[in-house]
Amino acid sequence: MSDTPTPLTFQVSARRLDAHASQARCKQAELAIDTDLAGNPAAFNPAELLLAALAGCMIKGIERVAPILKFELRGVEVRLHGVRQDVPPRMASIRYEIIVDTDEPDRRLALLHDNVRKYGTVFNTVAPGTDLSGELRRA
Protein backbone atom coordinates (compact mmCIF):
# COMPACT_ATOMS: atom_id res chain seq x y z
CA MET A 1 0.00 0.00 0.00
CA SER A 2 1.40 3.40 -1.02
CA ASP A 3 1.50 6.49 1.20
CA THR A 4 1.39 8.71 -1.88
CA PRO A 5 -1.76 10.82 -1.80
CA THR A 6 -4.07 10.70 -4.79
CA PRO A 7 -3.60 13.91 -6.80
CA LEU A 8 -6.51 16.31 -7.00
CA THR A 9 -7.92 16.73 -10.47
CA PHE A 10 -9.97 19.54 -11.95
CA GLN A 11 -12.35 19.65 -14.90
CA VAL A 12 -13.46 22.79 -16.74
CA SER A 13 -15.11 23.04 -20.13
CA ALA A 14 -15.58 26.16 -22.26
CA ARG A 15 -17.52 26.87 -25.41
CA ARG A 16 -17.90 29.75 -27.83
CA LEU A 17 -21.33 31.37 -27.60
CA ASP A 18 -20.79 33.83 -30.46
CA ALA A 19 -18.12 36.25 -31.75
CA HIS A 20 -18.38 38.26 -28.52
CA ALA A 21 -18.34 35.78 -25.66
CA SER A 22 -17.68 32.27 -24.50
CA GLN A 23 -18.75 30.41 -21.41
CA ALA A 24 -16.80 28.22 -19.01
CA ARG A 25 -18.46 25.58 -16.85
CA CYS A 26 -17.27 23.76 -13.78
CA LYS A 27 -19.37 21.78 -11.31
CA GLN A 28 -22.61 23.80 -11.06
CA ALA A 29 -21.00 27.15 -11.95
CA GLU A 30 -20.89 29.11 -15.19
CA LEU A 31 -18.62 32.01 -16.04
CA ALA A 32 -18.77 34.40 -19.00
CA ILE A 33 -15.44 34.82 -20.79
CA ASP A 34 -14.54 37.82 -22.96
CA THR A 35 -13.35 36.29 -26.22
CA ASP A 36 -14.38 39.27 -28.39
CA LEU A 37 -11.41 40.73 -30.28
CA ALA A 38 -12.82 44.21 -29.55
CA GLY A 39 -13.30 43.38 -25.87
CA ASN A 40 -16.43 42.69 -23.85
CA PRO A 41 -16.88 44.79 -20.70
CA ALA A 42 -19.45 42.31 -19.32
CA ALA A 43 -16.95 39.46 -18.95
CA PHE A 44 -13.42 38.66 -17.76
CA ASN A 45 -10.85 38.31 -20.54
CA PRO A 46 -8.33 35.45 -20.27
CA ALA A 47 -5.64 37.62 -18.59
CA GLU A 48 -8.20 38.89 -16.06
CA LEU A 49 -9.28 35.30 -15.42
CA LEU A 50 -5.67 34.44 -14.62
CA LEU A 51 -5.50 37.33 -12.14
CA ALA A 52 -8.87 36.30 -10.64
CA ALA A 53 -7.61 32.71 -10.27
CA LEU A 54 -4.52 34.01 -8.48
CA ALA A 55 -6.65 36.18 -6.17
CA GLY A 56 -8.95 33.25 -5.45
CA CYS A 57 -5.93 31.07 -4.68
CA MET A 58 -4.62 33.64 -2.20
CA ILE A 59 -7.95 34.02 -0.42
CA LYS A 60 -8.56 30.27 -0.34
CA GLY A 61 -5.07 29.75 1.07
CA ILE A 62 -5.82 32.23 3.83
CA GLU A 63 -9.12 30.46 4.56
CA ARG A 64 -7.24 27.15 4.74
CA VAL A 65 -4.48 28.23 7.14
CA ALA A 66 -6.35 30.74 9.34
CA PRO A 67 -7.92 28.01 11.53
CA ILE A 68 -4.62 26.10 11.73
CA LEU A 69 -2.73 29.24 12.80
CA LYS A 70 -5.67 30.39 14.94
CA PHE A 71 -5.45 33.61 12.95
CA GLU A 72 -8.38 35.94 13.62
CA LEU A 73 -9.59 38.06 10.71
CA ARG A 74 -12.71 39.95 9.72
CA GLY A 75 -12.08 40.15 5.99
CA VAL A 76 -9.60 39.89 3.12
CA GLU A 77 -9.25 41.86 -0.10
CA VAL A 78 -6.76 41.13 -2.89
CA ARG A 79 -5.78 43.72 -5.49
CA LEU A 80 -3.73 42.68 -8.53
CA HIS A 81 -2.09 44.53 -11.38
CA GLY A 82 -0.78 42.55 -14.33
CA VAL A 83 1.42 43.79 -17.17
CA ARG A 84 1.22 41.96 -20.48
CA GLN A 85 4.23 41.69 -22.74
CA ASP A 86 3.55 41.54 -26.49
CA VAL A 87 6.52 39.54 -27.82
CA PRO A 88 6.29 36.79 -26.89
CA PRO A 89 2.79 37.30 -25.49
CA ARG A 90 2.80 36.56 -21.78
CA MET A 91 2.08 38.11 -18.40
CA ALA A 92 5.43 39.80 -17.72
CA SER A 93 4.69 40.93 -14.19
CA ILE A 94 2.01 40.75 -11.54
CA ARG A 95 1.95 42.95 -8.46
CA TYR A 96 -0.43 42.14 -5.64
CA GLU A 97 -1.66 43.66 -2.42
CA ILE A 98 -3.42 41.45 0.12
CA ILE A 99 -5.30 43.54 2.68
CA VAL A 100 -6.35 41.70 5.83
CA ASP A 101 -8.77 43.19 8.34
CA THR A 102 -7.28 41.89 11.58
CA ASP A 103 -5.86 42.85 14.96
CA GLU A 104 -3.10 40.21 14.73
CA PRO A 105 0.50 41.43 15.27
CA ASP A 106 2.83 42.14 12.32
CA ARG A 107 4.81 38.90 12.82
CA ARG A 108 1.56 36.91 12.38
CA LEU A 109 0.76 38.86 9.19
CA ALA A 110 4.21 37.90 7.88
CA LEU A 111 3.52 34.25 8.76
CA LEU A 112 0.19 34.38 6.91
CA HIS A 113 1.92 35.89 3.85
CA ASP A 114 4.58 33.15 3.94
CA ASN A 115 1.83 30.53 3.88
CA VAL A 116 0.10 32.20 0.91
CA ARG A 117 3.36 32.18 -1.07
CA LYS A 118 4.41 28.70 -0.03
CA TYR A 119 1.21 26.65 -0.38
CA GLY A 120 -0.85 28.30 -3.12
CA THR A 121 -1.36 26.03 -6.14
CA VAL A 122 -2.04 28.83 -8.63
CA PHE A 123 0.55 31.08 -6.95
CA ASN A 124 3.24 28.42 -7.36
CA THR A 125 2.18 27.73 -10.94
CA VAL A 126 2.36 31.38 -11.99
CA ALA A 127 5.43 32.44 -9.96
CA PRO A 128 8.20 30.62 -11.90
CA GLY A 129 7.25 32.22 -15.24
CA THR A 130 6.25 35.68 -14.06
CA ASP A 131 7.77 38.50 -12.05
CA LEU A 132 5.29 38.00 -9.18
CA SER A 133 5.60 40.12 -6.06
CA GLY A 134 3.53 41.97 -3.54
CA GLU A 135 2.69 42.55 0.05
CA LEU A 136 0.24 41.46 2.70
CA ARG A 137 -0.81 44.29 5.00
CA ARG A 138 -3.34 45.20 7.62
CA ALA A 139 -6.53 47.02 6.58
Score class of each variant (00 low, 15 high):
Val83Ile: 14
Phe123Ser: 07
Ile33Cys: 08
Ser2Val: 02
Glu30Gly: 10
Ala66Tyr: 00
Thr125His: 08
Ala42Thr: 13
Arg84Asn: 08
Ile62Phe: 04
Arg117Asn: 11
Gly120Lys: 10
Leu37Pro: 07
Leu37Tyr: 01
Asp86Arg: 13
Val65Pro: 03
Leu109Gly: 04
Leu111Gly: 05
Thr4Arg: 05
His20Leu: 07
Glu30Trp: 00
Val87Gln: 11
Ile99Glu: 09
Pro41Phe: 04
Gly82Glu: 01
His113Gln: 06
Arg84Ile: 14
Arg84Val: 15
Thr4Asn: 05
Val126Arg: 01
Ser133Asp: 05
His81Glu: 14
Arg95Lys: 08
Ala32Gln: 13
Thr102Ile: 08
Glu30Thr: 15
Arg74Ser: 13
Phe44Asp: 06
Arg84Glu: 12
Arg74Asp: 15
Arg64Met: 11
Asn124Arg: 06
Gly61His: 00
Arg137Gln: 09
Val76Met: 10
Leu136Gly: 00
Thr102Trp: 08
Glu30Arg: 02
Glu63Ile: 06
Leu111Cys: 06
Leu69Phe: 10
Pro67Arg: 04
Arg25Ile: 07
Ala55Tyr: 00
Glu77Phe: 00
Lys118Trp: 03
Leu80Pro: 03
Leu132Thr: 07
Asn124Phe: 05
Gln85Met: 08
Phe44Val: 01
Ala127Pro: 04
Ser93His: 01
Thr35Arg: 06
Asp114Lys: 11
Gln11Val: 12
Glu104Val: 06
Pro46Lys: 13
Glu135Cys: 02
Asp101Ala: 15
Leu69Asn: 03
Asp34Arg: 09
Gln11Ser: 09
Val65Ala: 02
Leu49Ile: 15
Asp131Lys: 13
Gln23Cys: 13
Lys60Pro: 03
Val12Lys: 03
Asp36Gln: 03
Asn124Gln: 08
Val83Glu: 13
Arg79Glu: 13
Glu77Leu: 07
Gln28Asn: 14
Leu8Cys: 04
Asp131Gln: 13
Leu37Met: 06
Ala43Ile: 10
Ile99Asn: 02
Gly75Cys: 11
Ser22Thr: 06
Lys118Gly: 01
Glu72Cys: 06
Ala92Glu: 14
Glu135Asn: 02
His81Arg: 14
Ala139Leu: 07
Val12Tyr: 01
Thr4Val: 14
Val126Asn: 04
Leu8Asn: 08
Gly61Lys: 03
Val87Leu: 09
Gly129Lys: 06
Phe44Arg: 06
